[in-house]
Design a binder for these strands. Structure first.
Lengths: 255, 255
DNA sequence: AGACAAGTGGACGGGCACTTCCACTTGTAC
DNA sequence: GTACAAGTGGAAGTGCCCGTCCACTTGTCT
């Protein structure tokens, strides 16, 4: 504008070559995350994209930023699945198809498996999808309960719990037995049927779920691999700083 | 014997101070594995035991060796659980108590969670326990099926699959919601009930299960953390050397 | 064509964990 | 008490990955 050389570029405000690189990076990240999980070395992604690590870091300073960018589309598809399930005339069928669908999405993408079981307070881009998915899912289970097919004591928190379980199945035998998760989900769905449901132990509190999903958010900064222990520091130390900024107890995938 | 100074020591053939250190190491490893999982730095274990890393490596050259030593007792307890379940006059009750019991053992020990979902071809020490557990478990489910309570299409491979799932639940919300796994197991058990069982997708083949459990055996040598991806190398490359020494397809926890 | 902001890549310093190796200590047998 | 095998600890070499920094290149505007 004012300065003699102000290279305003296309839509994104980036120079066209930079924008092209950015897209390559996101594409590479999608592939790499899907294949190897959220822990792939940044350098692998950069190489795959044909750029230097410097470029990658310039565009996405933290791994979380990149994850958010890479899964934006998939998160929308995730939300869409709930919306579509609502369109099913049979509430119970809709519920089953939905659960299967989401678990299937996990099965096809190592990174997504992880993304679904954690929440990114930072990632504004996910908020809309998450909220929508949460709202629709809530309706979905209410309908299924009303139809008398879904057990009455099913709670929203059960869904992320199932996803965590499915993640366990997938990370353990996903490679060796790519179809095993289907059987597992079959068990889960049958357990969800109202017919002959027996009492269950209490579900985790929404707030607990929220904290759990915050877990791997260590990906935000200097994350240390594993996805399991290492993240929070070292597991022990219950004397920690008690999470000051912990608001939203709405849990699930709604931050 | 023959040499002038042959310090034969107590039972283990080790010098008494060395034997004391060895026990300290195993104890430290048990604690560390339970708290932080199988990935704890060797140095942490050494420090906890009050010895140098060199000593630790001398006694247990590989992580797998140490794991085997640390979990020997627990593996026996694991096998005992099946034996005890068989003593239950009510086959179905025995089955349920058994599943709960094992999942509970997972809940109380991060390392054990992992140990149960992989097999250590090396660890001779586990063989007896594994074989016993496998045999007893097989009987257990046959009894429960015969009693008409356990669904007829339940297969032995389902158990490790459940354990993998439970591992997923535990690693995700084990810290934030230490009791959540109970509800999850509740779902699973109700899904196992013969009453109103619906058809399920095929179970993983025994061989697939075996390969899956071999997975984390990367702990044997230069393992690279994570427990998820990194282990096998990098996920991709299906052109690998196709596992020459793959025998025992008996799966489960029987190598 | 010229000039400059924007963009780039990869070398580099830092950290962590794995293992090995060896000079030093200690227990044991005589 | 002495001698020596057994045992010890931690320094040092290696490898992986992170994230930064900067000299160089490239696109864009005039």
């Amino acid at each position: 504008m004012s300065s003699p050389t102000a290279p305003r570029a296309s839509t994104s405000g980036l120079r066209v070559d930079a924008e092209r690189n950015r897209q390559r990076i996101v594409a590479a990240a999608r592939e790499a995350f899907a294949e190897s999980g959220l822990d792939v070395p940044m350098e692998d992604i950069a190489r795959r994209a044909g750029v230097g690590v410097g470029t990658l870091y310039r565009r996405y300073p933290t791994r979380a930023d990149l994850v958010a960018a890479a899964f934006e589309v998939k998160m929308r598809a995730y939300a869409d699945a709930a919306r579509q399930a609502l369109a099913d005339p049979d509430p119970w069928h809709g519920f089953c198809v939905y659960v299967e669908k989401i678990c299937s999405m996990q099965a096809g993408d190592r990174g997504f498996t992880t993304v679904l079981t954690m929440t990114f307070p930072t990632a504004k881009q996910f908020e809309a999808s998450r909220d929508r998915a949460f709202g629709d899912f809530t309706t979905l289970i209410e309908r299924a309960k009303a139809a008398g097919r879904l057990r009455a004591d099913f709670v929203t928190e059960d869904m992320p719990m199932f996803l965590m379980a499915n993640a366990g199945v997938l990370t353990s035998i996903g490679d060796a037995a790519p179809e095993a998760w289907r059987r597992f989900v079959g068990y889960l769905l049958q357990a969800c049927a109202a017919q002959s449901a027996q009492p269950l132990p209490d579900p985790p509190a929404p707030r607990q779920m929220y904290r759990a999903m915050l877990r791997a958010t260590g990906y935000q900064r200097g994350a240390r691999r594993t996805g399991a222990a290492a993240v929070t520091g070292h597991g022990g130390d219950q004397s920690g700083p008690a999470d000051a900024g912990e608001q939203a107890p709405q849990t699930f995938l709604a931050g």
